[in-house]
Design a protein around this nucleic acid. Sequence first.
DNA 1: TTTTATATTTGCAATGATTTCAGAAGTGAA
DNA 2: TTCACTTCTGAAATCATTGCAAATATAAAA
Lengths: 145, 145
Amino acid sequence: MMRILSRAELKNELLRSGIRPSVQRLAIYEYVYRSTAHPTAEKVYEALRDELGSLSLTTVYNTLKLYADAGLVMMIHIDDNYLRFDGNTQMHAHFRCNECGEIYDLPVEGNSLGCLAGLEGIKVTEAQLYLRGVCKKCLQQNYIS
Amino acid sequence: MMRILSRAELKNELLRSGIRPSVQRLAIYEYVYRSTAHPTAEKVYEALRDELGSLSLTTVYNTLKLYADAGLVMMIHIDDNYLRFDGNTQMHAHFRCNECGEIYDLPVEGNSLGCLAGLEGIKVTEAQLYLRGVCKKCLQQNYIS
DNA sequence: TTTTATATTTGCAATGATTTCAGAAGTGAA
DNA sequence: TTCACTTCTGAAATCATTGCAAATATAAAA
């Protein structure tokens, strides 16, 4: 588990990736980095609009795309309707509850790609494991009702 | 590896799932079942339109959704731009080449979820493993040029 | 400090895959 | 044949995401 970074350290992360840390960029990075809710672009926009005084949804999309290309955030495609973003770039799986729509992180232990065959001669740069089903909370509620 | 089913057997598969095998439905099922290209709805539509004389893109979408809910086909979310479908419902991973866009199947051996923690009390109904990178063919071409 | 060049942000319009919807066509039972 | 019900169709609507050109901010040079 990596230590939680301060705002100044997040700024340095951007610089290290060759990205100039404008006010908007740092705010967007910090929000996604600290969130555990896998926010959509819209969510990031709503959360920061007031705080920043001025912000465009286009900027949010552009910036998150920039970060995804730089490997600073992960794009999560588990939702049928929109793209989500995750500031945690360490290997982990995602579980989406079909009842409540919530997305949970699942830790991955050991070699997650050990079960895969046919990787010879292929260059893998990214791996995502998505699970769906019903979460603990919804299972209990369904049982009661 | 499961035996390849005949058209009559595919029809029975539909009936067993409580789906009435109309001309359109059977054609769509058979096309996705026999394809290894992870076709989009548009692709299915183009491939069957002439053969069937009459077909609506809406029907293709509705039918594929019906099959996905019934567990007869898998929805593949690996492509940023559109939904793809896979008639192979056995556990396997998908690899998408970032250069050519091609999607390949990767066999999964053993317990693919063995590396996961935090599954207690959760009901998992679906697992998808997506990989991205550069495929063998594109790696060779990049080296030559 | 001003000028200048460049990078970033903004808001609106466009895009396009997917869905909605209401009517048409098909199907099977009586 | 009629009736009730299911399926299909095509056009219009939806809406997340992207394109674009103008506005603004920033940093370096003069």
